[in-house]
Design a protein around this nucleic acid. Structure first.
Lengths: 190, 190
DNA sequence: GTCTATATTCCGATAGAC
DNA sequence: GTCTATCGGAATATAGAC
């Protein structure tokens, strides 16, 4: 909670989060992090002994943040459509950062992730899917959303639109992602 | 064209295609390929001097195959819905192979790909998107498909459902992908 | 408690043998 | 034309200095 600069461990974690979304688990190294913090790569190992430990903390942090977002949205007086748009907005932010979402990153690299973190990854995906599913169900009950699938399947459709949408956007451009965003909401409120 | 076994270069290419979809560009090595062919990793370099050359051939081969599929479907008497289902079926095959699709693989790793192949990747994505777009447009004109978006945007929605669908399926299970498949077609023929 | 010097393994790639 | 011996460097990780 220092005001001057975050402690080393949080600084490492923050950079690792960015690198996970920009490059993926296998493509970044401790040296990349060390360079940005002007320290030796071996020094990272004091804070995170193995790369698997660092990945575990990245995933756990995302889980915490999504739980927090869930609470925040539940305590707000936003309607379901606004809640969904908050969620979509988090994806839109990624476009300008040359990043994909954490879920798409770990899902693509899943076969190469340390066994010790695979369960956490599954937990993150389950959490986020549940959030979207719940918002869809709520919106349907409120009468603001209309859709024919189960809330869970519709949640999967939307999450895959967003996850692969940001992946493609790095190649084909931002306009494609904006069109996807728009279509997701339009389909629901038709 | 040998009947006994494919030549070394094609064998390398075939394994590289699988590894690209199972592990991604950064996570497989020449040693992985050499091991499966019982040769030294350095021998791969005779056939593909640099890893970028191997990736380029993988992408070009996919482009050729998709062009061929395009011709084959155009020359068939399948209706648009059957054509789309052929396309979706190619994704469904991946599920049992612990693989994601080539587009999702290269899109996720895009920032780390050799500059020399990025344009080819963009070409592949443009080709496949165009195929789906064309099938959707045709189906709408035939009256078998109904949708409100432009064919291009609808193609993006479907491609992102499929690409991220296979990514998630490795973690959450095949049932989720089957539900996505079903929903894609159901939405179009409603 | 924090970081540096160093070890070890593996990577992609080259030069040269056959 | 095809493959092997080998290199230079980068990766993760350990042991020990401060």
């Amino acid at each position: 909670m220092s005001e001057k600069q975050p402690d080393t461990r949080s600084a490492i974690l923050s950079i690792a989060r960015d690198l996970m979304r920009q490059l993926g688990y296998n493509a970044f190294s401790y040296a990349d992090i060390a360079r940005k913090l002007d320290m030796k790569n071996a020094a990272i190992h004091y804070h995170y002994p193995a790369k698997a430990d660092l990945l575990a903390d990245v995933i756990e942090t995302y889980i915490s943040e999504y739980r927090q977002l869930e609470k925040q949205l539940a305590g707000s007086n936003l309607d379901s459509c606004q809640k969904l748009q908050q969620f979509i907005g988090k994806y839109a932010q990624l476009i300008g950062q040359n990043s994909i979402c954490i879920i798409g990153s770990v899902a693509s690299d899943y076969n190469t992730l340390p066994e010790s973190v695979k369960a956490k990854v599954a937990g993150l995906i389950s959490l986020v899917t549940g959030m979207v599913e719940h918002t869809l169900q709520e919106g349907r009950e409120e009468g603001v959303f209309r859709f024919r699938e189960t809330p869970r399947v519709r949640a999967l459709l939307i999450m895959t639109n967003l996850a692969a949408g940001v992946q493609l956007a790095r190649i084909t451009g931002k306009a494609d992602f904006v069109a996807i965003e728009q279509a997701i909401v339009d389909q629901l409120i038709q």
